[in-house]
Every structure is written in C-alpha cells, then in structure tokens.
Nucleic acid binder design. Structure first.
Length: 151
DNA sequence: CGTTTGACTACGC
DNA sequence: CGCGTAGCCAAAC
C-alpha cells in the first residue's frame, strides 16, 4: 500500500521540482516522482509504480487554475506524449506552449526525450532540498553537460 | 457515503 | 513496437 503520509507536502515538492524545468525541456511524471525520497514506512515498489499518478494529480491541481509560476506544460508521460485527454482544451494549450518553446513533435505526436528530456537540476540544488538525483530518461544522454537553466 | 475514473508506468505478449 | 493489463492511489461523481 502506498498511502502518502503528507499529500500536501508531496504536492509542494512536485511543484518545486517542476518550477526547475527549463524553457525548451520536458520532464516526465515518473522522473519527477523518482526525485522525491520514498516516505518513511512506504514500500518502495508501491511508490515506484503509483507515485507517478499522484504527480499527475498535482499537475491537475495547478493546471486547472493555470498557476503562472508553474510550467505545468513541461511535464509529459514516459513516452514523450501529452497525457491530457486528446483534443481537450488543456491538451491543446499544452501542445501550443511546448511548440512555442521550439519543442517538436514527431508524426505520432510524441516528443523525443533524448533531445528535449530534462536532465534534472544541478546536484547542489538537489542537495539543498534533500532530493534525489533523477534517473536518466530516454536512453543515453545527448552529452551536453552544460544544460543552462533558461527559465 | 460507495463507485468510478484516470495528466502513470512497468511488463508480458 | 504497439496493445492490454495489473497495481490498488486520489479525486471526482
């Protein structure tokens, strides 16, 4: 069983991380969840497979109000696709904002994570908030060790 | 209040 | 690869 002890704290951490995703890059639900330490007493396996859904809940909470501080449009699923209901107003907004950041979609409406996938925040930032390093996504990193925070 | 639904993901075919 | 499914969480009905 997962049962997060402090849901609001989890949401706060998710938003904190999402704010760090730079212009022109995207993070995934699972990636963000993996950066948050597994709460005490929570089974790690359950956390791994269920926490990404709760990250989606946290995104839903802000996108419905369209909180300006939080670039919610930069969060996509593990396949690089938009997870909002297709053709919904919110999904169209998200796609429009991503394209405005010069992020491109392939023929199947998917973003190449090897190109646009966020590599995560700097180690010192993670340490300051006691978070975990993100596990790499989308295969081998493109090799740019100097990913500037343009946000 | 039960019930249903879903901004997820890993895994097996 | 794509599709289906398990997992059993939260939020919305």
């Amino acid at each position: 069983m997962l049962q997060l002890p402090d849901l609001q704290a989890f949401y706060d951490t998710v938003w904190l991380i999402v704010r760090q995703i730079p212009y022109g890059y995207v993070g995934t639900y699972g990636q963000i969840a993996s950066m948050i330490p597994v709460p005490e007493g929570v089974d790690e396996t359950d956390y791994t497979r269920l926490a990404p859904r709760v990250v989606g809940d946290a995104m839903n909470a802000v996108s419905s109000h369209d909180v300006p501080d939080i670039p919610w449009h930069r969060v996509v699923n593990s396949k690089g696709g938009i997870s909002l209901p297709v053709e919904s107003a919110a999904a169209n907004t998200q796609r429009m904002r991503l394209r405005a950041e010069e992020i491109t979609f392939d023929m199947r409406e998917r973003i190449d994570l090897a190109t646009f996938g966020w590599l995560g925040p700097p180690a010192d930032w993670l340490a300051a908030y006691r978070l975990l390093p993100p596990h790499t996504i989308g295969g081998p990193p493109p090799g740019d060790t100097t990913q500037l925070n343009l946000f």
